[in-house]
Design a protein around this nucleic acid. Structure first.
Lengths: 215, 215
DNA sequence: ACAAGTACTGTTCAAACGAACAGTAGTCGT
DNA sequence: ACGACTACTGTTCGTTTGAACAGTACTTGT
């Protein structure tokens, strides 16, 4: 919606910076002085930003600038069942939104996934844990990935945590629990049996959040 | 440290409220008008608040009010080794400070503790995990607690995660790993042997944060 | 009994500030 | 070629605002 000019972006960023640093917005003359132009140029820019919906101006109020499109407080969507076809990171799928710094995880998390079985228990991942997933479509051998598997009964995709291993065209998705069989998929022979049918990597694990003590 | 008068608290809250609502602080006359007194009364109050360290005033700046004691961005201290005697929750002991909502954990966490052994591995707690601890000095049977144990060599206390069980005056601290022996402490016979000497409950586990994928 | 602090009123003043008007130069899409 | 928009300069005007000075009444601690 808003496509700002580079200059307007600069000015918006300056306002944000001053707000963080000072705790209150700059005056029109503050802006003008910082960029080295006259007050009216600042006023023009503010009006342009207001017209584009980035800010709101309270008439006749000193420093009466309110940021709209607020800086999102760093948070992560908790994704539940994924509607088939929809991109995983689509926030519309979010079950909840947790205020959690994505940078706490390594690599940085793009979304959270709630573990719903004990298949990864030997990797210290318990049912109910929230796993931070860094969205990417490739993985290295031995990494724990969020695998997106198509669920034939129901017509939706679901995310499962597995350890990824690939040898040539054969991908193996291991559970970290001896009671579960690994899923083997031969990429060279697509859609052979039902079990190993459509599969893609949703992302790799970057950490874990457990929101309660284990029983 | 600051003990504000009821009136000063009201005014501080009004400033906070206006900051949230408008995005910029009120002017002295805004404050005066809201409370129904003259501008100079507002000024007096602001100076009192500044004197008490609640706010900072930028001279000659319209709405030049900066909140100090800012609404703490929800965060948690990561406590390392605990100096003997010092209260655990003393933030001076903090190794790092993570921006993390304490309310994510259940019960709400007061600090984080980094696990440094594999003694709780069967509870899905791996070395390096950050455990959210709710500070309290009592625990129920079966709960996982942060136990504060005195380290004779070194003269400091350290926190260890154990499963707590008490029968009469006998407390047992179980590891969740068959390779570790439980620690048994008889509260009725204090300081009997070295192993089970000074012990206290630092808090109970409220969750866990793993900031990377397991190897 | 006195000083210090709280909680105000009232007035005046200068600086800070937003608003308005007029104008220039350049770019971009049609 | 024209209108719309960006990105400015320069000046003036009136309001908003913080600052300062003087004073009152009440409370609290020593």
């Amino acid at each position: 919606m808003a496509n700002l000019t580079p200059r307007q972006t600069e000015i918006l960023q300056f306002i944000e910076q001053r707000l963080r640093a000072e705790g209150y917005p700059p005056s029109q003359r503050d802006i003008a002085e910082h960029f080295g132009f006259a007050q009216n140029a600042a006023r023009d820019h503010l009006q342009a930003l207001a017209r584009k919906g980035e800010i709101e101006i309270s008439p006749n109020d000193a420093r009466g600038i309110r940021l709209l499109r607020e800086q999102t407080p760093p948070g992560l969507p908790l994704l539940g069942r994924i509607a088939a076809g929809a991109p995983i990171t689509a926030p519309s799928n979010a079950e909840h939104w947790l205020e959690l710094d994505p940078g706490l995880f390594q690599p940085r998390a793009d979304f959270l996934h709630r573990v719903d079985g004990d298949s990864m228990i030997d990797a210290g991942i318990l049912p109910g844990d929230l796993v931070g997933i860094h969205a990417q479509s490739e993985a290295e051998n031995g990494q724990i990935i969020a695998a997106c598997l198509y669920e034939p009964r129901g017509g939706f995709e679901r995310i499962t945590l597995k350890r990824y291993r690939r040898k040539g065209s054969v991908v193996t998705l291991h559970a970290e629990n001896p009671r579960y069989e690994p899923i083997v998929i031969d990429l060279a022979q697509p859609a052979e049996d039902q079990e190993a049918a459509p599969f893609r990597i949703a992302g790799i694990m970057g950490g874990l959040l457990r929101t309660g003590a284990p029983r």
